[in-house]
Amino acid sequence: MTVHLGTSAQDRWLRRYQSAVPGTPRLVCFPHAGGSATQYVPLSEALAPAVDTLAVQYPGHQDRYGEPCVEDLARLADDICAVLLRGPGSPLALFGHSMGAVLAWEVASRLERTAGPGSVTHLFVSGRRAPSCARAENVHRLDDAALITRIRRLGGTPPALVANQQMLRLILPVLRSDYTAVETHRPDPALRLTCPLVALTGDRDPMVTLEEARRWTTHTTGPAELRVFSGGHFFPEDHLPEIAALISACLLPAPHGVRNVPPVSAP
């Protein structure tokens, strides 16, 4: 069930899959390239009712397929930030995986710049190298066959979906547009946030080295930590309970003021 948020802009951009109790911490989730808001249904269920989870639906994705995709990640961040400021407001926690991590980072910087320090309570960045770790990428320039090979190798896409030629014709343009957005984006490597930041990575992720993930901790003046999980690029699929527990420990007051973070840490 999708719970409508009340305004046309919010209903277009944000999805809430669980009813929320007023006053609970709010977490806004950003999908990976080619992903959609529904990938966060399991996380929203795991966090409910203690955390109000909202998932971003990008233009051109899933039920927004009639809209053109946005291939400028900065513009996408501007649009999402404007919706968040008009709608749920702050403070907010943000979670993003892969492309979603870069987007969450950019939205967090805009929220802090516009609404001030404290507008972002936590930033969780998963499956992506830090902004200061520049690397040339040209996945968006691959032909269709090479792009299909890549998504098969990374996992995260159901094999039946990859094998369906009709579905592939719908998915590939969206995926290519998302890769264009993230690979042509040039984040400011000197930018520092003030909010607490938690970086999450898989120990066998072919897209992110451990050091590239660790560098996220230098991109805030607030508390920061790296959490390493077993698995590849889509490690969150195998660690939903641990990740939900980690988010809950960060966002919810612990008994007697003790922060009980699950013991998953960098080697």
Rank of each mutant, 00 (worst) to 15 (best):
S126T: 01
M1D: 09
I151Y: 07
L154M: 04
S36M: 10
P42N: 00
T194R: 06
A136C: 10
V162I: 14
M99I: 00
M207Y: 03
F229Y: 12
A245G: 12
T38K: 07
L168Y: 00
V208F: 13
T221Q: 12
I243A: 04
G118W: 06
G127F: 09
A104I: 04
A244F: 02
E225I: 02
M167I: 14
V56F: 01
A181D: 04
F95S: 01
F30C: 08
D79G: 10
P267G: 08
R169K: 14
L172P: 02
P42D: 03
Q39F: 10
A160N: 12
T149V: 11
P253T: 05
E183H: 00
H32V: 01
P131K: 08
V21M: 08
V258L: 15
M1G: 05
E112C: 05
A145M: 13
E137K: 10
Q10W: 04
V228T: 14
V107Y: 03
D79Y: 11
P25Y: 02
T24F: 07
I151M: 11
D78C: 01
L43K: 00
S36G: 13
R26F: 05
C250W: 00
A33R: 02
G6R: 03
D203Y: 05
A199N: 09
L14F: 05
R16S: 12
A37E: 08
G66L: 15
L170Q: 13
P158Q: 05
P173N: 09
D188G: 12
M167Y: 15
P267C: 07
D79M: 06
N164L: 04
T194V: 03
A134M: 11
E211Y: 12
A33W: 00
L111K: 07
T217S: 11
D205F: 09
L154R: 02
A224W: 06
S126V: 04
E112S: 07
G257A: 07
G118I: 10
A224Q: 08
P255N: 09
T218M: 09
T194P: 02
V83T: 03
N138G: 12
T221D: 11
P31N: 03
E106I: 04
G34H: 02
L200N: 12
A20Y: 01
H185Q: 01
P117V: 01
T217A: 11
L103T: 00
P196E: 07
A130K: 06
E225P: 02
Y40N: 00
E106Q: 05
A48H: 01
D78Y: 05
P88F: 08
R86N: 15
T194E: 05
V261Y: 06
A115W: 10
G89W: 12
A145W: 12
R64T: 07
A145R: 15
A254H: 13
A213C: 14
C69G: 10
A146H: 14
V264L: 10
C69K: 03
L154Y: 05
G35A: 04
V83F: 08
A50T: 11
L197I: 04
L94Y: 08
A82T: 09
V3P: 08
R141F: 13
V139Y: 14
D203M: 09
P88S: 06
G66Y: 13
Y40A: 00
E237M: 04
L210V: 14
R129V: 14
A199L: 10
Q165P: 01
P31Q: 02
N164F: 06
S109I: 07
R113W: 12
A115Y: 06
A33L: 08
D238V: 08
G232V: 05
F30N: 06
